[in-house]
Write a protein that binds this DNA or RNA. Sequence first.
DNA 1: GTCAAAGTTTTGATTCATCAAAGTCTGCGA
DNA 2: TCGCAGACTTTGATGAATCAAAACTTTGAC
Lengths: 219, 219
Amino acid sequence: MPSSTVENYLKAMHHLSGAGDEPIAIGRIAGELELTPGTVTTMMKHLGSRGLVDYLPRRGARLTPTGEAAALKVLRRHRLIELFLVEVMELDWGDVHDEAEELEHVISDRLLARMDEMLGHPTADPHGAPIPDADGRMPEQSCASLAEAEPGGYQVVQVSEEDGALLDWLSEHGLRPGSAFQLLSHDKPTGILRLKILGSGLETNLGSNAAGHLRVQPT
Amino acid sequence: MPSSTVENYLKAMHHLSGAGDEPIAIGRIAGELELTPGTVTTMMKHLGSRGLVDYLPRRGARLTPTGEAAALKVLRRHRLIELFLVEVMELDWGDVHDEAEELEHVISDRLLARMDEMLGHPTADPHGAPIPDADGRMPEQSCASLAEAEPGGYQVVQVSEEDGALLDWLSEHGLRPGSAFQLLSHDKPTGILRLKILGSGLETNLGSNAAGHLRVQPT
DNA sequence: GTCAAAGTTTTGATTCATCAAAGTCTGCGA
DNA sequence: TCGCAGACTTTGATGAATCAAAACTTTGAC
Protein backbone atom coordinates (compact mmCIF):
# COMPACT_ATOMS: atom_id res chain seq x y z
CA MET A 1 0.00 0.00 0.00
CA PRO A 2 1.76 3.15 -1.15
CA SER A 3 1.51 6.12 1.22
CA SER A 4 -0.30 9.19 -0.03
CA THR A 5 3.07 10.84 -0.54
CA VAL A 6 4.16 8.04 -2.84
CA GLU A 7 0.81 8.16 -4.64
CA ASN A 8 1.35 11.84 -5.32
CA TYR A 9 4.77 11.20 -6.82
CA LEU A 10 3.33 8.53 -9.09
CA LYS A 11 0.47 10.75 -10.15
CA ALA A 12 2.81 13.65 -10.90
CA MET A 13 5.08 11.41 -12.95
CA HIS A 14 2.18 10.02 -14.90
CA HIS A 15 1.02 13.54 -15.60
CA LEU A 16 4.47 14.59 -16.81
CA SER A 17 5.21 11.56 -18.92
CA GLY A 18 4.58 12.22 -22.58
CA ALA A 19 4.14 9.85 -25.48
CA GLY A 20 7.73 8.58 -25.74
CA ASP A 21 9.45 6.89 -22.86
CA GLU A 22 12.02 9.56 -22.20
CA PRO A 23 12.90 9.68 -18.51
CA ILE A 24 11.32 12.62 -16.68
CA ALA A 25 13.86 15.14 -15.38
CA ILE A 26 14.09 15.33 -11.59
CA GLY A 27 13.64 19.10 -11.71
CA ARG A 28 10.31 18.79 -13.48
CA ILE A 29 8.97 16.42 -10.86
CA ALA A 30 10.24 18.76 -8.15
CA GLY A 31 8.49 21.67 -9.87
CA GLU A 32 5.22 19.81 -10.27
CA LEU A 33 5.14 18.80 -6.59
CA GLU A 34 6.73 22.02 -5.29
CA LEU A 35 9.58 20.18 -3.60
CA THR A 36 13.33 20.64 -3.74
CA PRO A 37 15.24 18.51 -6.27
CA GLY A 38 17.20 16.80 -3.48
CA THR A 39 13.98 15.53 -1.95
CA VAL A 40 12.89 14.09 -5.27
CA THR A 41 16.23 12.38 -5.88
CA THR A 42 15.94 10.65 -2.52
CA MET A 43 12.41 9.53 -3.26
CA MET A 44 13.27 8.29 -6.76
CA LYS A 45 15.91 5.98 -5.30
CA HIS A 46 13.35 4.74 -2.82
CA LEU A 47 10.68 4.20 -5.48
CA GLY A 48 13.33 2.53 -7.62
CA SER A 49 14.05 0.03 -4.88
CA ARG A 50 10.32 -0.64 -4.61
CA GLY A 51 10.09 -1.33 -8.33
CA LEU A 52 7.79 1.58 -9.07
CA VAL A 53 10.18 3.67 -11.18
CA ASP A 54 13.37 3.26 -13.20
CA TYR A 55 15.78 5.80 -11.84
CA LEU A 56 18.58 6.85 -14.19
CA PRO A 57 21.00 9.05 -12.21
CA ARG A 58 21.45 12.52 -13.66
CA ARG A 59 19.01 11.73 -16.47
CA GLY A 60 15.69 11.38 -14.68
CA ALA A 61 13.22 8.63 -13.89
CA ARG A 62 10.31 6.91 -15.55
CA LEU A 63 7.44 4.81 -14.22
CA THR A 64 7.78 1.04 -14.50
CA PRO A 65 4.66 -0.88 -15.61
CA THR A 66 3.95 -1.49 -11.91
CA GLY A 67 4.33 2.20 -11.16
CA GLU A 68 2.16 3.12 -14.12
CA ALA A 69 -0.58 0.78 -12.93
CA ALA A 70 -0.44 2.28 -9.44
CA ALA A 71 -0.62 5.79 -10.93
CA LEU A 72 -3.67 4.86 -13.00
CA LYS A 73 -5.41 3.56 -9.88
CA VAL A 74 -4.90 6.90 -8.19
CA LEU A 75 -6.10 8.70 -11.32
CA ARG A 76 -9.21 6.55 -11.40
CA ARG A 77 -9.95 7.39 -7.80
CA HIS A 78 -9.36 11.06 -8.38
CA ARG A 79 -11.59 11.33 -11.41
CA LEU A 80 -14.40 9.19 -10.07
CA ILE A 81 -14.41 11.25 -6.89
CA GLU A 82 -14.49 14.50 -8.86
CA LEU A 83 -17.43 13.29 -10.88
CA PHE A 84 -19.20 12.07 -7.75
CA LEU A 85 -18.76 15.45 -6.09
CA VAL A 86 -20.24 17.24 -9.10
CA GLU A 87 -23.02 14.81 -9.98
CA VAL A 88 -24.17 13.55 -6.60
CA MET A 89 -23.02 16.20 -4.15
CA GLU A 90 -23.66 19.04 -6.57
CA LEU A 91 -20.48 20.92 -5.80
CA ASP A 92 -19.10 23.40 -8.33
CA TRP A 93 -17.14 22.22 -11.31
CA GLY A 94 -14.13 24.28 -10.30
CA ASP A 95 -14.14 23.37 -6.61
CA VAL A 96 -13.87 19.63 -6.75
CA HIS A 97 -10.23 19.22 -7.67
CA ASP A 98 -8.71 20.06 -4.29
CA GLU A 99 -11.28 18.00 -2.45
CA ALA A 100 -10.60 14.97 -4.65
CA GLU A 101 -6.88 15.47 -4.13
CA GLU A 102 -7.35 14.60 -0.45
CA LEU A 103 -10.05 11.99 -0.71
CA GLU A 104 -8.28 9.94 -3.38
CA HIS A 105 -5.78 8.69 -0.79
CA VAL A 106 -8.19 7.47 1.86
CA ILE A 107 -11.33 6.16 0.16
CA SER A 108 -11.78 2.38 0.36
CA ASP A 109 -12.18 0.16 -2.68
CA ARG A 110 -15.69 -0.69 -1.57
CA LEU A 111 -16.76 2.95 -1.39
CA LEU A 112 -15.12 3.68 -4.72
CA ALA A 113 -16.96 0.75 -6.31
CA ARG A 114 -20.20 2.12 -4.90
CA MET A 115 -19.54 5.54 -6.41
CA ASP A 116 -18.71 3.93 -9.74
CA GLU A 117 -22.00 2.05 -9.60
CA MET A 118 -24.04 5.11 -8.59
CA LEU A 119 -22.54 7.04 -11.49
CA GLY A 120 -23.22 4.21 -13.97
CA HIS A 121 -19.58 3.28 -14.66
CA PRO A 122 -18.69 6.58 -16.30
CA THR A 123 -15.72 6.94 -18.66
CA ALA A 124 -14.97 10.63 -18.24
CA ASP A 125 -14.75 13.05 -15.31
CA PRO A 126 -16.43 16.51 -15.16
CA HIS A 127 -13.59 18.02 -17.19
CA GLY A 128 -13.92 15.33 -19.83
CA ALA A 129 -10.73 13.57 -18.77
CA PRO A 130 -10.98 9.81 -19.29
CA ILE A 131 -11.43 7.59 -16.22
CA PRO A 132 -9.33 4.40 -16.29
CA ASP A 133 -11.45 1.29 -15.68
CA ALA A 134 -11.02 -0.93 -12.63
CA ASP A 135 -8.24 -2.88 -14.43
CA GLY A 136 -6.34 0.31 -15.21
CA ARG A 137 -7.26 0.51 -18.89
CA MET A 138 -7.79 3.99 -20.27
CA PRO A 139 -10.82 4.50 -22.54
CA GLU A 140 -9.79 5.57 -26.05
CA GLN A 141 -10.43 9.18 -26.88
CA SER A 142 -10.44 10.40 -30.45
CA CYS A 143 -9.87 14.09 -30.07
CA ALA A 144 -7.34 16.77 -30.89
CA SER A 145 -6.34 20.11 -29.43
CA LEU A 146 -8.50 23.04 -30.51
CA ALA A 147 -5.26 24.98 -31.02
CA GLU A 148 -4.55 22.87 -34.12
CA ALA A 149 -8.09 22.70 -35.49
CA GLU A 150 -9.25 23.89 -38.91
CA PRO A 151 -12.61 25.72 -39.25
CA GLY A 152 -15.64 23.41 -39.00
CA GLY A 153 -18.10 21.93 -36.53
CA TYR A 154 -16.75 20.55 -33.25
CA GLN A 155 -17.78 19.18 -29.90
CA VAL A 156 -15.81 19.78 -26.68
CA VAL A 157 -14.39 16.51 -25.37
CA GLN A 158 -12.15 17.68 -22.55
CA VAL A 159 -11.13 20.84 -20.72
CA SER A 160 -7.79 20.61 -18.96
CA GLU A 161 -8.23 21.49 -15.32
CA GLU A 162 -5.09 23.55 -14.67
CA ASP A 163 -6.43 27.07 -14.94
CA GLY A 164 -9.31 28.11 -12.64
CA ALA A 165 -10.03 31.41 -14.37
CA LEU A 166 -10.19 29.83 -17.81
CA LEU A 167 -12.45 27.14 -16.39
CA ASP A 168 -14.88 29.77 -15.12
CA TRP A 169 -14.80 31.69 -18.37
CA LEU A 170 -15.48 28.58 -20.45
CA SER A 171 -18.21 27.47 -18.12
CA GLU A 172 -19.95 30.86 -18.36
CA HIS A 173 -19.74 30.77 -22.15
CA GLY A 174 -21.26 27.31 -22.36
CA LEU A 175 -18.07 25.53 -23.35
CA ARG A 176 -18.10 22.38 -21.24
CA PRO A 177 -17.43 18.80 -22.21
CA GLY A 178 -20.21 17.84 -24.61
CA SER A 179 -20.91 21.38 -25.85
CA ALA A 180 -21.01 21.82 -29.62
CA PHE A 181 -19.69 24.87 -31.48
CA GLN A 182 -18.65 26.07 -34.89
CA LEU A 183 -15.04 27.15 -35.46
CA LEU A 184 -15.55 30.06 -37.84
CA SER A 185 -11.93 31.01 -38.38
CA HIS A 186 -8.50 30.26 -37.04
CA ASP A 187 -5.88 32.91 -37.71
CA LYS A 188 -2.58 31.14 -37.09
CA PRO A 189 -0.29 34.23 -37.15
CA THR A 190 -2.24 36.20 -34.54
CA GLY A 191 -3.36 33.09 -32.68
CA ILE A 192 -6.99 34.14 -32.61
CA LEU A 193 -9.84 31.69 -33.04
CA ARG A 194 -13.38 32.85 -33.67
CA LEU A 195 -16.11 30.51 -32.67
CA LYS A 196 -19.88 30.36 -32.49
CA ILE A 197 -21.36 28.42 -29.62
CA LEU A 198 -24.38 26.31 -30.54
CA GLY A 199 -27.27 26.67 -28.16
CA SER A 200 -26.66 30.27 -27.11
CA GLY A 201 -25.65 31.23 -30.67
CA LEU A 202 -23.03 33.56 -29.19
CA GLU A 203 -19.85 34.34 -31.07
CA THR A 204 -16.61 34.82 -29.20
CA ASN A 205 -12.85 35.00 -29.68
CA LEU A 206 -10.33 32.74 -28.02
CA GLY A 207 -6.53 32.89 -27.91
CA SER A 208 -4.63 29.86 -29.11
CA ASN A 209 -2.99 29.32 -25.72
CA ALA A 210 -6.45 29.02 -24.13
CA ALA A 211 -7.55 26.87 -27.06
CA GLY A 212 -4.68 24.51 -26.24
CA HIS A 213 -6.55 23.55 -23.05
CA LEU A 214 -9.58 22.38 -25.02
CA ARG A 215 -9.66 18.99 -26.68
CA VAL A 216 -12.29 18.65 -29.37
CA GLN A 217 -13.82 16.20 -31.83
CA PRO A 218 -15.24 17.10 -35.25
CA THR A 219 -19.01 16.66 -35.48
CA MET B 1 -5.36 22.74 12.07
CA PRO B 2 -4.73 19.66 14.20
CA SER B 3 -3.13 16.72 12.35
CA SER B 4 -5.18 13.55 12.08
CA THR B 5 -3.00 12.06 14.81
CA VAL B 6 -3.93 14.86 17.16
CA GLU B 7 -7.59 14.54 16.18
CA ASN B 8 -7.47 10.87 17.13
CA TYR B 9 -6.04 11.65 20.55
CA LEU B 10 -8.77 14.21 21.17
CA LYS B 11 -11.47 11.82 20.01
CA ALA B 12 -10.14 9.04 22.23
CA MET B 13 -10.00 11.35 25.23
CA HIS B 14 -13.52 12.57 24.64
CA HIS B 15 -14.65 8.98 24.43
CA LEU B 16 -12.91 8.07 27.70
CA SER B 17 -13.97 11.11 29.67
CA GLY B 18 -16.90 10.34 31.91
CA ALA B 19 -19.31 12.61 33.72
CA GLY B 20 -16.93 14.07 36.34
CA ASP B 21 -13.81 15.92 35.38
CA GLU B 22 -11.35 13.39 36.72
CA PRO B 23 -8.19 13.39 34.62
CA ILE B 24 -7.95 10.40 32.26
CA ALA B 25 -5.09 8.05 33.10
CA ILE B 26 -2.32 7.94 30.50
CA GLY B 27 -2.56 4.14 30.39
CA ARG B 28 -6.19 4.24 29.38
CA ILE B 29 -5.49 6.59 26.49
CA ALA B 30 -2.61 4.36 25.43
CA GLY B 31 -4.91 1.33 25.57
CA GLU B 32 -7.64 3.03 23.57
CA LEU B 33 -5.26 4.09 20.81
CA GLU B 34 -3.04 0.99 21.03
CA LEU B 35 0.09 3.00 21.71
CA THR B 36 2.76 2.73 24.39
CA PRO B 37 2.33 4.94 27.46
CA GLY B 38 5.56 6.78 26.71
CA THR B 39 4.19 7.90 23.38
CA VAL B 40 1.06 9.22 25.04
CA THR B 41 3.01 11.10 27.72
CA THR B 42 5.00 12.85 25.02
CA MET B 43 1.86 13.77 23.13
CA MET B 44 0.04 15.00 26.25
CA LYS B 45 2.85 17.46 26.94
CA HIS B 46 2.62 18.62 23.36
CA LEU B 47 -1.16 18.97 23.46
CA GLY B 48 -0.78 20.73 26.81
CA SER B 49 1.50 23.32 25.25
CA ARG B 50 -1.07 23.81 22.49
CA GLY B 51 -3.81 24.42 25.03
CA LEU B 52 -5.86 21.39 24.06
CA VAL B 53 -5.44 19.40 27.28
CA ASP B 54 -4.53 19.92 30.92
CA TYR B 55 -1.71 17.52 31.63
CA LEU B 56 -1.22 16.57 35.28
CA PRO B 57 2.00 14.54 35.52
CA ARG B 58 1.51 11.06 36.98
CA ARG B 59 -2.23 11.69 37.31
CA GLY B 60 -3.43 11.90 33.75
CA ALA B 61 -4.84 14.53 31.43
CA ARG B 62 -8.18 16.09 30.62
CA LEU B 63 -9.47 18.04 27.64
CA THR B 64 -9.60 21.82 27.99
CA PRO B 65 -12.71 23.55 26.62
CA THR B 66 -10.73 24.20 23.43
CA GLY B 67 -9.76 20.55 23.21
CA GLU B 68 -13.31 19.45 23.90
CA ALA B 69 -14.61 21.69 21.13
CA ALA B 70 -12.06 20.26 18.71
CA ALA B 71 -13.03 16.72 19.72
CA LEU B 72 -16.70 17.48 19.13
CA LYS B 73 -15.89 18.75 15.66
CA VAL B 74 -14.23 15.47 14.83
CA LEU B 75 -17.15 13.56 16.32
CA ARG B 76 -19.57 15.57 14.22
CA ARG B 77 -17.61 14.76 11.11
CA HIS B 78 -17.41 11.12 11.98
CA ARG B 79 -21.09 10.69 12.67
CA LEU B 80 -22.32 12.72 9.73
CA ILE B 81 -20.06 10.72 7.43
CA GLU B 82 -21.32 7.44 8.88
CA LEU B 83 -24.89 8.49 8.32
CA PHE B 84 -24.10 9.68 4.82
CA LEU B 85 -22.50 6.35 3.96
CA VAL B 86 -25.55 4.45 5.17
CA GLU B 87 -28.28 6.74 3.86
CA VAL B 88 -26.86 8.00 0.59
CA MET B 89 -24.22 5.45 -0.36
CA GLU B 90 -26.24 2.55 1.02
CA LEU B 91 -23.29 0.83 2.65
CA ASP B 92 -23.92 -1.65 5.48
CA TRP B 93 -24.60 -0.44 8.98
CA GLY B 94 -21.60 -2.34 10.34
CA ASP B 95 -19.11 -1.36 7.62
CA VAL B 96 -19.19 2.38 7.85
CA HIS B 97 -17.21 2.94 11.02
CA ASP B 98 -13.73 2.23 9.61
CA GLU B 99 -14.45 4.20 6.47
CA ALA B 100 -15.60 7.22 8.48
CA GLU B 101 -12.50 6.90 10.66
CA GLU B 102 -10.37 7.81 7.64
CA LEU B 103 -12.64 10.30 5.94
CA GLU B 104 -13.26 12.37 9.06
CA HIS B 105 -9.72 13.77 8.86
CA VAL B 106 -9.73 14.93 5.25
CA ILE B 107 -13.23 16.07 4.33
CA SER B 108 -13.59 19.82 3.81
CA ASP B 109 -16.06 21.97 5.71
CA ARG B 110 -17.89 22.67 2.48
CA LEU B 111 -18.39 19.01 1.69
CA LEU B 112 -19.44 18.30 5.25
CA ALA B 113 -21.99 21.11 5.09
CA ARG B 114 -23.32 19.62 1.86
CA MET B 115 -23.73 16.22 3.49
CA ASP B 116 -25.48 17.78 6.44
CA GLU B 117 -27.85 19.52 4.06
CA MET B 118 -28.51 16.39 1.98
CA LEU B 119 -29.32 14.48 5.16
CA GLY B 120 -31.63 17.22 6.44
CA HIS B 121 -29.51 18.31 9.42
CA PRO B 122 -29.82 15.02 11.31
CA THR B 123 -29.27 14.74 15.06
CA ALA B 124 -28.26 11.09 15.33
CA ASP B 125 -25.98 8.74 13.38
CA PRO B 126 -26.93 5.22 12.17
CA HIS B 127 -26.19 3.80 15.62
CA GLY B 128 -28.36 6.42 17.27
CA ALA B 129 -25.40 8.34 18.66
CA PRO B 130 -26.12 12.08 18.80
CA ILE B 131 -24.44 14.34 16.23
CA PRO B 132 -23.10 17.61 17.65
CA ASP B 133 -24.36 20.62 15.71
CA ALA B 134 -22.06 22.93 13.74
CA ASP B 135 -21.36 24.95 16.91
CA GLY B 136 -20.38 21.84 18.86
CA ARG B 137 -23.57 21.54 20.90
CA MET B 138 -24.74 17.99 21.61
CA PRO B 139 -28.46 17.33 21.19
CA GLU B 140 -30.09 16.24 24.45
CA GLN B 141 -30.97 12.59 24.67
CA SER B 142 -33.39 11.31 27.29
CA CYS B 143 -32.54 7.65 27.49
CA ALA B 144 -31.17 5.06 29.86
CA SER B 145 -29.29 1.80 29.54
CA LEU B 146 -31.49 -1.23 28.88
CA ALA B 147 -29.39 -3.05 31.51
CA GLU B 148 -31.12 -0.98 34.22
CA ALA B 149 -34.63 -0.97 32.76
CA GLU B 150 -37.79 -2.28 34.44
CA PRO B 151 -40.36 -4.25 32.41
CA GLY B 152 -42.47 -2.07 30.12
CA GLY B 153 -42.63 -0.66 26.61
CA TYR B 154 -39.47 0.84 25.11
CA GLN B 155 -37.95 2.23 21.97
CA VAL B 156 -34.27 1.79 21.03
CA VAL B 157 -32.49 5.12 21.00
CA GLN B 158 -28.88 4.11 20.51
CA VAL B 159 -26.73 1.04 19.94
CA SER B 160 -23.11 1.45 20.96
CA GLU B 161 -20.89 0.65 18.05
CA GLU B 162 -18.09 -1.28 19.77
CA ASP B 163 -19.07 -4.87 19.08
CA GLY B 164 -19.51 -5.97 15.46
CA ALA B 165 -21.08 -9.35 16.26
CA LEU B 166 -23.65 -7.84 18.61
CA LEU B 167 -24.41 -5.23 15.98
CA ASP B 168 -25.17 -7.92 13.42
CA TRP B 169 -27.29 -9.91 15.86
CA LEU B 170 -29.34 -6.87 16.85
CA SER B 171 -29.78 -5.83 13.26
CA GLU B 172 -31.06 -9.30 12.29
CA HIS B 173 -33.50 -9.27 15.18
CA GLY B 174 -34.89 -5.88 14.22
CA LEU B 175 -33.36 -3.99 17.13
CA ARG B 176 -32.06 -0.81 15.53
CA PRO B 177 -32.41 2.78 16.64
CA GLY B 178 -36.12 3.57 16.44
CA SER B 179 -37.32 -0.02 16.91
CA ALA B 180 -39.98 -0.54 19.59
CA PHE B 181 -40.18 -3.56 21.89
CA GLN B 182 -41.72 -4.80 25.10
CA LEU B 183 -39.44 -5.72 28.01
CA LEU B 184 -41.34 -8.71 29.44
CA SER B 185 -39.03 -9.50 32.34
CA HIS B 186 -35.66 -8.57 33.73
CA ASP B 187 -34.10 -11.12 36.04
CA LYS B 188 -31.36 -9.18 37.83
CA PRO B 189 -29.60 -12.16 39.50
CA THR B 190 -29.13 -14.18 36.31
CA GLY B 191 -28.82 -11.08 34.14
CA ILE B 192 -31.36 -12.30 31.60
CA LEU B 193 -33.83 -10.00 29.89
CA ARG B 194 -36.77 -11.32 27.95
CA LEU B 195 -38.17 -9.08 25.29
CA LYS B 196 -40.77 -9.07 22.56
CA ILE B 197 -39.95 -7.14 19.44
CA LEU B 198 -42.84 -5.16 18.00
CA GLY B 199 -43.28 -5.59 14.29
CA SER B 200 -41.95 -9.14 13.99
CA GLY B 201 -43.62 -10.13 17.28
CA LEU B 202 -40.61 -12.33 18.02
CA GLU B 203 -39.59 -13.04 21.61
CA THR B 204 -35.93 -13.32 22.50
CA ASN B 205 -33.53 -13.36 25.44
CA LEU B 206 -30.67 -10.95 25.94
CA GLY B 207 -27.83 -10.96 28.49
CA SER B 208 -27.42 -7.86 30.62
CA ASN B 209 -23.92 -7.17 29.30
CA ALA B 210 -25.34 -7.01 25.76
CA ALA B 211 -28.26 -4.95 27.09
CA GLY B 212 -25.71 -2.48 28.43
CA HIS B 213 -24.93 -1.53 24.85
CA LEU B 214 -28.51 -0.52 24.15
CA ARG B 215 -29.86 2.82 25.23
CA VAL B 216 -33.63 3.02 25.38
CA GLN B 217 -36.54 5.34 26.06
CA PRO B 218 -39.90 4.32 27.58
CA THR B 219 -42.84 4.58 25.16
C1' DG C 1 39.18 22.41 -25.41
C1' DT C 2 38.06 25.10 -21.59
C1' DC C 3 34.77 27.12 -18.50
C1' DA C 4 30.71 28.75 -16.55
C1' DA C 5 25.79 27.98 -15.98
C1' DA C 6 22.29 24.82 -15.11
C1' DG C 7 20.80 20.87 -13.17
C1' DT C 8 21.63 16.90 -9.91
C1' DT C 9 23.28 14.54 -5.95
C1' DT C 10 25.05 14.47 -1.37
C1' DT C 11 25.27 15.74 3.30
C1' DG C 12 23.66 17.12 7.57
C1' DA C 13 19.51 18.74 9.98
C1' DT C 14 14.70 19.00 11.21
C1' DT C 15 9.89 17.58 12.39
C1' DC C 16 6.45 14.25 13.58
C1' DA C 17 5.06 10.10 15.50
C1' DT C 18 6.43 6.19 17.33
C1' DC C 19 8.81 2.20 20.30
C1' DA C 20 11.76 -0.30 23.78
C1' DA C 21 13.81 -0.24 27.78
C1' DA C 22 15.68 2.03 31.71
C1' DG C 23 14.58 5.08 35.44
C1' DT C 24 11.31 7.23 38.76
C1' DC C 25 7.22 7.99 41.51
C1' DT C 26 3.21 6.60 44.50
C1' DG C 27 0.46 4.37 47.28
C1' DC C 28 -0.75 0.03 49.49
C1' DG C 29 0.03 -3.77 52.51
C1' DA C 30 2.82 -5.77 56.06
C1' DT D 1 7.80 2.92 58.23
C1' DC D 2 9.51 0.05 54.69
C1' DG D 3 9.39 -2.11 50.50
C1' DC D 4 7.63 -3.22 46.35
C1' DA D 5 4.39 -3.63 42.35
C1' DG D 6 2.40 -1.11 39.06
C1' DA D 7 1.86 3.10 36.59
C1' DC D 8 4.22 6.82 34.59
C1' DT D 9 8.22 9.38 32.58
C1' DT D 10 12.59 9.71 30.41
C1' DT D 11 15.98 8.57 27.19
C1' DG D 12 17.84 7.14 23.00
C1' DA D 13 16.65 5.34 18.50
C1' DT D 14 13.97 4.65 14.32
C1' DG D 15 11.53 5.72 9.86
C1' DA D 16 9.21 8.87 6.76
C1' DA D 17 9.39 13.10 4.49
C1' DT D 18 11.34 17.16 4.03
C1' DC D 19 14.87 21.36 3.38
C1' DA D 20 19.27 24.18 2.76
C1' DA D 21 23.47 24.38 1.12
C1' DA D 22 27.74 22.30 -0.44
C1' DA D 23 29.71 19.31 -3.96
C1' DC D 24 29.47 17.42 -8.13
C1' DT D 25 28.28 16.42 -13.40
C1' DT D 26 26.78 17.82 -17.80
C1' DT D 27 26.19 20.73 -21.48
C1' DG D 28 26.58 24.51 -24.32
C1' DA D 29 29.17 28.70 -25.59
C1' DC D 30 33.09 30.55 -27.14
